[in-house]
Structures are given as C-alpha cells and as structure tokens.
Design a protein around this nucleic acid. Structure first.
Lengths: 227, 227
DNA sequence: CGGTAAGTGTTACTTTAGGTAACGGTTACT
DNA sequence: AGTAACCGTTACCTAAAGTAACACTTACCG
C-alpha cells in the first residue's frame, strides 16, 4: 500500500470537465421544470425532468439552495453577457444610458420565467445563504457608482452621492422592468427611452445645480471598464 | 327540533371582537418571534412565543401564509399610517417629495426586522397566494401615478408616462432604502434630501423639455387626496 | 337548569419534501 | 487485478406544516 505520492492521479482529473457539464445540465433541467410546473418545483420534480432520481442530483449539488444558487448564477451570466458591454461602452451619455437600460429589459423580456423564479424565488428553507439577486444588484450598482463618481469628479463636483444614486437607479430600472414585464402596455423601446430620459434629466439637473452644462449628445470623459 | 329561525344567535356574535384581538395578538407574537429567532421561524416557534400550542394558532389562521399575510397587512398599516398623510399633503413640490420619501425611510428605520421579514420574507411553500409587498408597491405607485398625471396634465403635457414613472420612483426609493438600511453610511435626512433632489430634477427636466419652468419652492395644483 | 355554540387548550398523529444510506454496476487509469 | 472516480437505484430518515380527536370553559337560550 505504501505508494509514493506523485502528481495528481489522472483518475481524478478525468472528470473535471464532466462534472461542470453535468451541473449545467441539471441547471437547464431546473429551468425547464420551472417553466413547466411553476416556480415551486421540488427536487423530485427537477430530478424527474432530468430523467434521474434524487440522489443523483445530490451528488452534484449539496443542497436545494446550492442548485438554486447555480440557477441564479446562470441567470447572472445571461444578464451580464448583455449588460457588461453596455456598461463598458462609451458614447453619448443619453444613448449610453438608454443602452444600459435596454440591455437589462431585453434580458428579462427574453427570460421572464427564469427571471421571476430567480428574483421572487422561493429561497425557502434555511438562511438565505447567498442571495444572487442582491449580489447582482450590488455589482451593477457599484459599477454604476464608479461611472457616476468619475463623472461627478470630472466636473469637480462632490461625488459622495454616487453610491445612493447608483442603488436608486438600479431599483428604479428593476421595478419599472417588473411592472412592464407583468402588464406589457408599452414597447420595450418606449420604456427604455423613457427611463433614459428620466435618468438623464436627473443627472443633468445635478450637474446644472453645480453650474455645469452637459450635452446629452456628446460622449463624456473616458471611463474605466468593468473589471 | 323545529326551531323557528330568528335573528342571529347572540352566542355567535359574542366573539366577533375577540377573534380580531386574538389574531392581532398572534401577529404580534410572530413579529416578536421573528425579532428573536430570525426570519425563518416556524409555526411551532410562533405558537410557543404566544404561549400556546400549534392547533390554537390554526384556529385563527388557516395557514402559514395566512399568518404571514396578516403580518404583512400589519406592516402595511404601519407604512400607510405615515405615508398616507405625506402623500395627501400639499405644499412646495420639493418639500412634498422629500416628505414622502422620508416617511418611507422612517418606517423602515423604525422596523427593520419586520421590514426585512416582510419583503425578503420566506413566502415559502405553495403559490405566493397574495403578495402584500407587491400590493403595497402597486398602491403607492398608482397614487403617485395619479399625482404625476395630474401634474403633467396641469401643464398640458402628455401624461402617458406617469405610470412607468411612478413604478420607477417606487423602486428607486425602495432600493435606495434597502441599501441604506443595511449599511447606514449616511443620515436619514441626508438620504431623503438627496433622493428628493434627484426626483425633483427628473421632474423638472421633464417639464423643461415641455417648455415649462416650474418652481420647486412653490406649491402646485390642488390635488385629489388618496382614496 | 339542561342544552348548545362558541371558544379554550392539549397530545398524538399524518403528510410532504428535503435530504441520506446502502447497495450494485461501469469505465479507465495504475 | 485493483481502485478511484462516476452512474444509478430503492428505501429510508427527519423536520415542519397541518390535522384529528379529545377534554374543559363560558355564557346565551329556551
């Protein structure tokens, strides 16, 4: 038995990719199950959807919330894939705002069920170990806070308000989005445009009150990218 | 046995008030239990807190979600007691906005646990029968929508945007409030003021773009009350 | 005063869904 | 041949929501 310790046993590595793939597969199954049976699916349902029995699921996820967390992360991925570029892109301010807002709306429009599951999600049971939604919001908010802060500093204004501003913006877009998703009484374009207008006016107002006249049609300061 | 049917038996009426009172008592117990044992209390815990065993609880609430719903309604009451007057009061616009925002913030400041329980609430189990939070938000939003609509119409502007506006505002204040509640890095007054400024600027911008110059320090149109 | 309609409360059960134990088979590295 | 990882199953455990069944109290009703 006294085997000399050598490099990692290839038998361990063999599955490295496989496990990831399997998890992804179950995440998909969960999403499918949610779409089919509503947001209160159980582990049994998910397993069935994947054509498998519970214990298999539990080999890949320690826990129900672990699974849900993974679903949340998948959603985050979808979200960030579209929002990242929009946040990073430079350009005329008005248009830039519009694009960020629209990126968000497009994601929830394309995945309404997933979206609802994740945010209104039955993060039942035990403590809310990790709240993906909150994390995403915080991430976006802090990115915005940086952009806004840079902005204000570029005009030599007090940047202390950037953080509440950012969180306010996030909540604003999210809630307007929720409303819109439920009763789609206006086109996405309209809403994006409308929200962008509001936001732009608020920013403009702040700048004005600092004695600065900004042009909504022109790109501003070069800005750092998301990291 | 052939008793003539007469007016309501007094034995039925005797308890009318009592039941209400008892429910209220259990709602209080729930709030206390939440404060003590965190947001994932069970029925057993609540019953224990009230010094009683489960079935008693179930005589007054059909269900866990029924109980939680009642807690939510209690919270709504607290909220509306302060927001109602603020929403109904007339006065200089800037100040009016500030007061509404501050009313909200004061409620969550005074009842942080209850607030968190209700909004992040484990509305576990079965379908989310009735979402109190959503209802409250909708109620507030529609009140705001009316105020905004009146405003815009008073200036002969298109009032179509009032509804998304209102929902955006609600989300904005709520999310900024959440952020503030978690890490209280600024005074409530500061935040109220800051949010009011943002909101005012956005409104002002909209009016300007319609060619109207409004004075933030003057009361506007006489407005309908909440109903 | 006997009946009865509401309430008080209990302990002990059922049910459901999350999670686990224990078992056996397959593949491919060592 | 041995073993480390996976595949998968059925049958169980457990916690918490919810219920059944039983016993006592109060006050109205005739």
């Amino acid at each position: 038995m006294a085997r000399t310790v050598k490099g990692p046993d290839a038998r361990r590595e063999r599955w490295k990719g496989h496990r990831e793939q399997r998890r992804a597969e179950f995440v998909e199954a969960t999403i499918a199950a949610v779409a089919r049976k509503g947001p209160d699916v159980g582990m049994e349902d998910v397993a069935a959807e994947a054509g498998v029995s519970k214990p298999v699921l539990y080999r890949h996820f320690t826990d129900k919330s672990d699974l849900y967390l993974a679903v949340g992360q998948k959603a985050t991925e979808l979200l960030m894939d579209r929002m990242g570029p929009a946040l990073a892109a430079d350009g005329p301010i008005r248009e830039r705002i519009r694009r960020i807002v629209d990126a968000y709306l497009s994601v929830i429009e394309d995945n309404p069920n997933l979206y609802r599951f994740v945010v209104k999600g039955s993060f039942v049971d035990r403590p809310v170990e990790k709240d993906v939604v909150q994390e995403d919001k915080d991430l976006i908010a802090s990115t915005l806070a940086r952009i806004l802060g840079d902005y204000l500093r570029a005009f030599d204004m007090d940047s202390g308000g950037a953080e509440p501003w950012a969180h306010a913006l996030v909540g604003m877009v999210q809630n307007a989005g929720d409303w819109w998703l439920d009763r789609q009484t206006m086109s996405r374009e309209n809403l994006s445009d409308y929200l962008a207008t509001i936001i732009w006016h608020a920013i403009d107002g702040l700048l004005r009150s600092g004695g600065i006249q900004a042009d909504p049609e022109r790109p501003l300061t070069p800005l750092r990218l998301v990291d």
